[in-house]
Nucleic acid binder design. Sequence first.
RNA 1: GGCUCGUUGGUCAAUCGGUUAAGACGCCUCCCUUUCACGGAGGAAUGACGGGUUCGACUCCCGUACGGGCUACCA
Length: 507
Amino acid sequence: MKKKVRVRFAPSPTGGLHLGGVRTVLYNYLFAKHYGGDFVLRIEDTDQTRFVSGAEDYIFECLKWCGLEPDESAIHGGEYGPYRQSERKEIYHRYAHQLVDQGDAYYAFDTPDELEQMREQYKTPENPSPTYNQHTRKAMRNSLNMELEVARDLIESGTPYVVRIKMPEDEVIGFTDIIRGAVNFNTSQVDDKVLLKADGMPTYHLAVVVDDYLMKITHAFRGEEWLSSAPVHLMLWKKLGWEDEMPEWAHLPLIMGPDGAKLSKRHGNKYGFPIFAMNWTDPVKNEFTEGFRERGFMPEAFINLLALLGWNDGTGQEIFSKQELVERFSLERVHSAGAQFDFEKAKWYNHEWIKRSTAERLLPDVRSLFHNKGVAIGDDSKLKSVIDMVKERCTLLTDFYNQSAFFFVDPVQLDTESMKAKWNDQKQLFFTELIRTYTLTQLWNATDLEHEFKEIASVNAIKPSELMLPFRIMLVGGKFGPGVFDIAETIGKEATVARIHHALSIL
RNA sequence: GGCUCGUUGGUCAAUCGGUUAAGACGCCUCCCUUUCACGGAGGAAUGACGGGUUCGACUCCCGUACGGGCUACCA
């Protein structure tokens, strides 16, 4: 069975691509690939979201980083193009006016002030947010309250207008959500949403229905925040006469912040974790928001943790490659309840992915990390063996710097406090002797170095345990890192001897 | 307020009427490790509440409470 799945991406007016957005794209992608269907993309660039500069490129770069690129034809035209909303204006107009002609929509000329006035007028404690609906529309300036000719004249003469849907009275309208089952609404509870805005652009409501129909979308997945506008879309499918071709819908559970509310940028600032896929600077507000990529996440881990936030395959497995996700994914196993995002768990996923990745996979990222820090790393083979030595200590990609910089440059700061405490002449003597011995050592390898180290210690009647820590601090600067003798072997004789020297001169 | 969705440990969650209610993150203890990690063993911690249905309910139904979402010429 061939299924075509539509992906809607909705960059907010401020731009950025957040966790929920990526997960929606991911589920669409997994579902499409699972059934060997098409992965289509529709670009929303309405006036409001109208691409604050760079937003579109940003989105594509995020999707590329995550490995969730749509088919080329789905972006640049292809069979059902154009995909950019601003390039389809005439299409939306055609259907909007068709609805007016049928009597299922109407022109409205109310100014923003008049709308505001209406809301103020009907506002009561019981009804804090009155809407433009079957009751209020009778008192507004729209084509239902005047001759259609008069309305057309107003439009001819350049009066700004919008097209609103005319919601019928007291009809039950519903659909079957793949995740939640039957969902029903009474049309009397739904307001007359704007379909076509005064600037000629469609609202999401009109655009999504028209595009899904024309692009022959069979499955539509979106966040649960859209569930309440489903009746508007349902009515449009019906009134446009396309009911039989309506896609199956699934409303995905929301991703929540630690406080239980829908995850937003606010949460990231408050709790100190990223919520965007990549760094994003809002060009209007000049606000910077850190991304998962720059924080040090691997894309494999990122999509893995996102996929498992609301879905699992029932086996208890938690680490999945993209390929495995495609094979195992099923919408039926997606939860209906929202899930709180836990940054600690997110870091765990990344840690697991780093541990399981080969040095080859990690190499480019670590190399550029060092490059950005201005540290020369020499040839890749040394860096590769260093990566293998330290990767289990790195939760984020950026940890590789602190965990392995000392392999390439002398430690800047030595934790002398930890050495000084038990320092004495005897130890001073030991290290002086160690320098002499190491300088003469022919075969520079960890086992021999350890041997020599312990021999000198025993001759001087000092417990090796007293000497290991100072030695480590001399080489790496602090109390961390792989085995000391492995470090000594890797950094070489010259650096080892020099670092002992340097430390002794400080003490 | 209205509409709507949801509710298993602090968090992610398994269970598709019968289990001592898995597992993971985090936390705690111990082992391994002459550092930090990795790894290993163990521990504390869960079915919102009240009614039904049933031989039997975390699981099905109803109600209550609580939480989320929507309530724009934003998506």
